[in-house]
């Protein structure tokens, strides 16, 4: 019965600085005693302790200084920086671990490799997020703590930031970031597949799915020659998104970057589909036999013209997109963007 009071007092004082504990405990005991009737029953004690409230809150009342890691004054900046840092770190660690595990897998089976890639990537991303969180938080705690101590010049209206320019079309940050991540991830995966010439086309063969009968789709030599250019195009795409992320709206710089990126990609695509001997001869033979095509050449020509058709289609879209982009840059909308 008495036990409850002791436990309560202990639970309050253990949260306080050591040099005040004894005094607060003595005072609290006296106060609780005053609030209790003579010969208190357990119900009386429970009632009094309930009135006094949660030990956590009571202890907070006894403390003379407010305690927090980051004050509300810095919360906005903290959250903003935290968001950016976490997104960037996640993207970077995702890409690098993917490249690392994909290029040098330890596992020998396909299932093992998939498990390895996912497992390693997941744990790397999580641990880099924790690092980022800790670092940003510590920096802000330091800023908050020391920033308020060494008082700087008083705030003046002159230090206000400039208004963003009207009449600009914003480029969504999320879109740029996602674009950057997509380009990196898929670029890395595709480059890896090309490097190992592991692009197969699956088809149905004699009642079972046959992964290209183990015959690669493309010609080894052609692919290897092509690979550096492809990697360059991925880099250009990432750089383009980086420029857009930094500038944040459409202007000449972003439009130029956008144009270079689009032209690079489409030219690359056109060159790629028109490369002679692109398709693996063994693959063509096999496919010709399967589709009962009159000859390998006919099939190759068919595939080539289909590919050219698709690329032409994409090229038209790219051109339209570029025209629209440049028109927008030089004739900004009247409506101001908030």
């Amino acid at each position: 019965m008495k036990d409850l009071i002791e436990r309560y007092v202990y639970d309050v004082t253990r949260r306080l600085p050591e040099n005040t504990r004894a005094e607060v405990a003595k005072e609290l005991n006296a106060n609780i005693g005053d609030m209790l009737p003579e010969q208190p029953a357990e119900a009386d004690i429970v009632k009094v302790l309930t009135t006094l409230g949660e030990p956590r809150e009571l202890a907070a009342g006894y403390r003379t200084t407010q305690r927090y890691l980051i004050s509300p004054k810095w919360m906005d900046e903290y959250l903003m920086v935290l968001k950016i840092v976490l997104i960037v770190l996640a993207a970077i660690s995702l890409v690098f671990t993917l490249i690392e595990t994909l290029t040098d897998p330890q596992a020998t089976t396909v299932i093992g490799m998939i498990a390895e890639v996912f497992g390693t990537t997941f744990s790397e991303v999580i641990s880099s997020l924790f690092h980022g969180f800790t670092l940003v938080t510590l920096i802000f705690v330091a800023i908050d703590h020391y920033g308020s101590k060494c008082d700087k010049e008083p705030w003046s209206p002159k230090s206000l930031p400039e208004l963003p320019k009207d009449n600009v079309r914003k480029i969504s940050r999320t879109e740029s970031i996602i674009g950057m991540m997509m380009a990196t991830i898929f670029g890395a995966i595709f480059a890896y597949l090309l490097l190992n010439n592991q692009l197969y086309i699956a088809w149905f063969d004699e009642g079972t799915w046959n992964i290209g009968a183990g015959i690669p789709l493309f010609n080894d030599a052609v692919i290897l020659a092509f690979l550096p250019v492809y990697v360059a195009s991925v880099v250009v795409t990432i750089a383009d998104h980086a420029v857009k992320l930094k500038v944040g709206h459409w202007n000449v710089a972003t439009a130029v970057s956008h144009t270079i990126e689009h032209l690079f990609s489409i030219v690359l695509m056109i060159v790629f589909v028109n490369t002679p001997n692109l398709l693996n001869a063994a693959f063509l033979d096999h496919a010709a036999a399967f589709f009962e095509s009159p000859s390998t050449t006919v099939l190759a020509e068919g595939i080539a013209s289909a590919a050219t058709g698709i690329v032409t289609f994409i090229a038209i879209f790219v051109v339209i997109d570029l025209i629209v982009t440049w028109v927008r840059v030089f004739r900004p909308s009247r409506r101001s963007v908030k």
């Binding site: 005072e27 609290l28 006296a30 106060n31 005053d34 609030m35 009135t51 006094l52 409230g53 809150e57 009571l58 009342g61 006894y62």
Partner: peptide
């Protein structure tokens, strides 16, 4: 003392919670 002050305030219609007054 803490509790007498609490009662005195209450008698005059001003109620402060014990958990607020003591700290």
């Amino acid at each position: 003392y803490g509790y007498s002050l609490l009662q005195r305030l209450e008698e005059k219609g001003v109620s402060i919670e014990a958990g607020t007054l003591y700290p």
